[in-house]
Simulated assay, not measured.
Amino acid sequence: MGVGLHFAWNTTLGLIGIPASGHASVGLMTTRPTGPDLLTGGEFGLEASIVPVIVSLLIAIPMLIAAHRRGDLLPMRCGHR
């Protein structure tokens, strides 16, 4: 799932014309993000902004809550192998 989400994210950015991982690509649209680097990612692109952090949390938190409710989360075992 992680690889699929990463592929979808990079493909979407490329199609929109937003730099992915600092590499600009010719997309279906021409974009020129403006605003603070915290929101736009600056020269590196959207991946360097707070946006992917928020999106990741919005995906991860419900998954962790569901796993906890099902009892699928195991406590860490320190020092045991």
Rank of each mutant, 00 (worst) to 15 (best):
G27R: 05
I54L: 15
V55T: 07
T12D: 01
L5Q: 08
G42V: 02
H80F: 10
R70K: 14
T11Y: 12
A60W: 15
L58E: 05
I65H: 06
D37V: 13
L13W: 06
P36M: 12
G27D: 06
D37W: 05
I61T: 09
V3F: 00
R69F: 01
H6E: 14
L57G: 09
I59P: 02
H23A: 14
G79S: 05
R81C: 09
F44T: 14
E47G: 11
R81W: 06
T40M: 07
L73K: 06
P36N: 13
H68M: 10
P36A: 14
M76S: 11
P19T: 07
M29L: 15
P33S: 06
H80L: 15
T34E: 12
L46T: 00
P75F: 02
S25A: 13
R77Q: 15
P75N: 04
N10M: 10
L5M: 12
L28E: 00
R77M: 12
C78D: 12
P36H: 14
G71L: 04
F44H: 14
M1G: 11
G4S: 06
T11A: 15
A24Y: 04
N10Y: 06
N10P: 01
P52S: 02
T40R: 10
R70P: 00
L46R: 07
H80Y: 07
P33T: 00
G27W: 02
F44L: 09
T11H: 13
G4H: 01
N10I: 06
F44N: 10
T34H: 07
I18N: 08
G79W: 02
P52I: 06
G14P: 03
G45F: 04
L28Q: 08
I50F: 07
A24C: 01
G2A: 01
G41A: 03
G41Y: 00
T30V: 09
I61Y: 06
D72W: 09
G71K: 04
L57N: 05
A60K: 11
G45D: 05
I54N: 07
S21Q: 12
N10E: 11
V53D: 14
